[in-house]
Design a protein around this nucleic acid. Structure first.
Length: 106
DNA sequence: GTGCTGACACAGG
DNA sequence: ACCTGTGCCAGCA
């Protein structure tokens, strides 16, 4: 099975609504555990199965090598973009999502 | 145990 | 916008 930490990370990523994004640091901060690198490592290893494209750098740039795929999803979900062309940059100012509400979460 | 690497963040040039 | 250096934490040879 996956580690509890990875499980929590994947759970949060999976909870990110369309048109919204969270930075690696934001997730780490929300979980108050590990660090941005751990979040990135988890997505790199177990990212399949969750909307990894909704997880990007603090700058608003998607993961290296997957920026094109991420861009396609952004246009599909209507994510606010500052640059619709590489370097792809998401409008963090409005697209940033604080995280799942403990109450709203089932 | 030691050292390198990585889907990061931040500051500086 | 780009690259470099430093700090952080975990996995792997």
């Amino acid at each position: 099975m996956l580690t509890d930490y990875a499980d929590r990370v994947l759970d949060v990523v999976d909870a990110i609504p369309a048109g919204r994004v969270m930075s690696y640091g934001d997730i780490a901060e929300y979980l108050a555990e590990g660090g941005p690198r751990q979040v990135g490592r988890v997505l790199a290893s177990y990212g399949a199965g969750v909307p990894w494209w909704r997880v990007i750098h603090a700058d608003g740039t998607p993961a290296p090598g997957h920026d094109l795929a991420a861009l396609a999803h952004y246009q599909e979900e209507g994510t606010p973009l500052r640059s619709a062309q590489p370097p792809v940059r998401v409008d963090m100012r409005h697209a940033r999502w604080p995280g799942p509400d403990p109450q709203q979460a089932s």
